[in-house]
Simulated scan of single mutants.
Amino acid sequence: MAKNRTGRVGEQIKKELSVLIQNEVKDPRIGFVTVTGVDVTSDLSQAKVYLSVFGDEEAKSASLKGLEKAGGFLRTELGKRIRLRHTPELIFKIDESIAYGSRIEKLLGDISHEEEN
């Protein structure tokens, strides 16, 4: 039953953070960022926020630094929007699963192309 609650809280944090990053954060280092997932610990003390950033490695690191700098603001705004006793600490991580998936897709395409020849 507790697993269900952490999932719901994670989805709500994901939804609210997406809106906050798009509309409220004014840091110029933050580029086009998409929140791909949120994993919340069972005691709701920490939330790992997985981000997909459009751009090269430099843009990814700049966006990550900007979001870490705005972490206090984002946590405060989350506390106002989501009624929890304690707002989870936000830990930002770059989600490499999209790039990994496209690389696997390319490799599979290359293999099938070689088999045809």
Rank of each mutant, 00 (worst) to 15 (best):
M1D: 08
A2Y: 04
A2N: 12
A2G: 08
K3I: 11
K3T: 06
K3E: 13
K3W: 13
N4L: 11
N4F: 13
T6Y: 13
G7Q: 09
V9H: 09
V9N: 04
G10I: 05
E11R: 12
I13G: 01
I13H: 03
I13T: 03
I13Y: 01
K14I: 05
K14C: 05
E16G: 07
E16D: 09
L17H: 00
S18C: 03
S18F: 02
V19W: 07
V19T: 12
L20A: 06
L20W: 06
L20R: 10
I21S: 07
Q22W: 03
N23G: 07
N23T: 07
N23A: 06
V25Y: 09
V25W: 10
V25K: 12
P28T: 00
P28I: 02
R29Q: 00
I30V: 14
F32I: 04
V33S: 05
V33Y: 11
V33G: 04
T34G: 08
T34K: 14
T36G: 02
V38E: 02
D39R: 12
T41N: 01
T41V: 01
S42Y: 09
D43Y: 04
D43T: 10
L44G: 03
S45Q: 14
S45L: 04
A47N: 02
K48G: 01
V49F: 04
Y50G: 01
L51M: 06
L51I: 00
L51D: 02
S52T: 03
V53K: 06
F54T: 05
F54M: 10
G55F: 08
D56W: 13
D56Y: 10
E58W: 04
E58M: 07
E58P: 02
K60Y: 05
S61A: 09
S61H: 13
S61N: 14
A62M: 09
S63L: 05
S63E: 03
S63M: 00
L64T: 00
L67V: 01
L67P: 02
E68M: 12
E68V: 08
K69N: 06
A70N: 03
G71D: 06
G71S: 15
G72Q: 01
G72P: 01
F73W: 05
L74S: 08
L74T: 05
L74W: 09
L74A: 06
L74N: 08
R75D: 02
T76V: 03
T76N: 15
T76E: 11
E77M: 11
L78K: 00
L78W: 00
G79C: 02
G79M: 02
K80R: 15
K80L: 08
R81V: 01
I82N: 08
I82D: 05
I82T: 10
R83S: 10
R85W: 03
H86T: 10
P88I: 02
E89S: 11
L90E: 07
L90F: 09
L90W: 13
I91L: 14
F92E: 01
K93D: 01
I94W: 14
I94V: 11
I94E: 05
E96K: 15
I98C: 06
I98Q: 12
I98T: 12
G101I: 07
G101S: 14
R103D: 07
I104T: 05
E105R: 15
E105I: 07
L107P: 05
L107N: 08
L107M: 14
L108N: 13
G109R: 15
D110N: 14
D110K: 15
I111L: 15
I111Q: 11
S112T: 12
S112F: 10
H113E: 14
H113G: 00
H113F: 10
H113A: 12
E114S: 14
E114Q: 13
N117K: 15
